[in-house]
Design a binder for these strands. Structure first.
Length: 407
RNA sequence: GCGAUCGUAGCUCAGUUGGUUAGAGCGCUGGUUUGUGGUACCAGAGGUCGGGGGUUCAAGACCCCUCGGUCGCCCCA
């Protein structure tokens, strides 16, 4: 007889329960509330997309596309991919549904994403993000609004302490291309001073050398050509308008000329809210402008900006969770009263009062169990029905309910 | 993909240079005490020591493989 091996969770996935789940839910609830304050519409999108949605938009050479996607052939022979990020799918939905008619659109989504990576602190194979995008708005005001919203969200989650907004511009396409060419030339001239990782980056994603953590790269990277010298007048004005908007809105930021984005579609504004409280994962929330993306997917030239934040990472940073206390716990002292306890329980819940009941186990230990759940009040029920409570006599809905019972 | 480290009851862990029927606390179940919002005491259930292979008279301890967790690198939110 073969022994049954109990199944394990898939590597890098989590079963969230208890405080972990409460933290997660709190992040999502706060995001949903804040995004409504800013007039962002909700979106529900498929978790699976045609593989081309991501390979065309993120860049074939990026790690995400080349080695981290969960891609498979479905029974019809189509190549399907579990979404590794939101932006490309949102752009696809925008095009397939003809949402140009609604532009500019302020959209928000949250949900699971999948990346085949080595799990570590704040990084999972199935992870979750909240995401906000403005599609069809070319003005710097859109960038500013997104950043102001992100700033408020972090403040409402009370995790803004120790989190700073780093801002950069990658310029428009001509600026970016010129800068990139200059960087490649410069790094090629200094190949012998670069780390092995950075030599590989030079081939695949030279901009990434700029934010290399390897100390051997720092002198070369710090002396590299800066984007400012390659910015067109337009790009400069754009960035100036964004920073002026942030200052006017009272959002603190710092310039980080070495800040780049990992995905190919970014232009102009790039930003990250970073912290040192997450181990190796510094970025709490990141995004930027991606004016070229929708065109890459075969649509009309459409400007867009957006950001995303890892829910797990935000959840880890929350220090104080709002307490969720059960309002009423019924202790059934005598099983003869079970029917009356059920009736009371139902009345409480219909009155909008959270309630539960302890009616099993040794009768003498039921109070112990009730106390351990830490309810606001314990209601005593015996064979004669409800006859009293213990807890603070406040002006709560529960107390008013109990008084109406007595009356 | 690379590196480090860990994997013993539901949970947190102890298990001495490999040596008799693998332990504790908490939790759980029951009992006694107490008496009605967190008491104390007693008892019980619960483990093929992540999985597989090997060395040995003897492996939870040593070796190999494998699967996971954690933390870095890389990448990214």
């Amino acid at each position: 007889m073969a022994k049954i091996q109990t199944p394990q969770a898939v590597r890098g996935t989590q079963d969230m329960f208890g405080e972990t789940e409460e933290r997660f839910a709190h992040v999502v609830a706060t995001f949903e509330r804040v995004r409504r304050l800013y007039g962002f519409k909700g979106l529900q999108l498929p978790v699976i997309e045609p593989t081309a949605v991501f390979s065309r938009s993120l860049g074939e050479a990026t790690d995400v596309v080349s080695k981290e996607m969960y891609s498979f052939e479905d029974r019809g022979g189509d190549s399907i991919t579990l979404r590794p990020e939101f932006t490309a799918g949102i752009a696809r939905a925008y095009l397939t549904n003809g949402w140009q008619q609604f532009a500019p659109m302020k959209l928000s989504v949250h949900g699971p994403l999948f990346r085949y990576e080595r799990p570590q602190k704040g990084r999972y194979r199935q992870f979750h993000q909240i995401d906000a995008e403005i599609i069809g708005a070319a003005e710097p005001a859109a960038d500013v609004e997104l950043l102001v919203m992100a700033d408020q969200l972090l403040k409402e989650l009370a995790i803004n302490d120790g989190v700073t907004l780093q801002l950069n511009t990658l310029g428009d396409t001509p600026s970016r291309d010129a800068w990139r060419a200059a960087l490649v030339g410069y790094f090629n001239d200094h190949k012998n001073a670069l780390s092995e990782d950075s030599l590989a980056r030079l081939e695949k994603n030279p901009l990434r050398i700029l934010d290399s953590k390897d100390p051997t790269d720092r002198p070369v990277a710090d002396a590299a050509p800066v984007i400012d010298d390659y910015l067109s007048g337009e790009a400069q004005d754009f960035f100036g308008a964004v920073t002026a908007g942030l200052d006017a809105a009272g959002v603190a930021w710092t310039r980080n000329a070495a800040l780049v984005r990992g995905l190919d579609y970014y232009r102009h504004t790039a930003f990250e809210f970073v912290t040192d409280r997450l181990g190796a994962q510094g970025t709490v929330l990141g995004g930027g402008r991606y004016d070229g993306l929708i065109e890459n997917l075969g649509g009309p030239a459409t400007p867009a900006v957006g950001w995303a934040a890892g829910i797990e990472r935000l959840a880890m940073l929350i220090e104080q969770l709002p307490v969720q206390q059960l309002e009423a716990m019924i202790v059934l002292e005598n099983d003869e009263g079970l029917g009356q306890a059920f009736a009371l329980l139902r009345q409480l819940r219909q009155a909008g009062i959270s309630a539960d009941m302890i009616a099993t186990g040794s009768p003498k230990k039921r109070y112990d169990k009730a106390v351990k759940q830490n309810p606001a009040a314990i209601l005593r029920v015996n064979e004669h029905g409800y006859y009293g409570f213990s807890g603070e006599d406040t002006n709560s809905p529960l107390m008013n309910f109990l008084k109406s019972l007595a009356a």
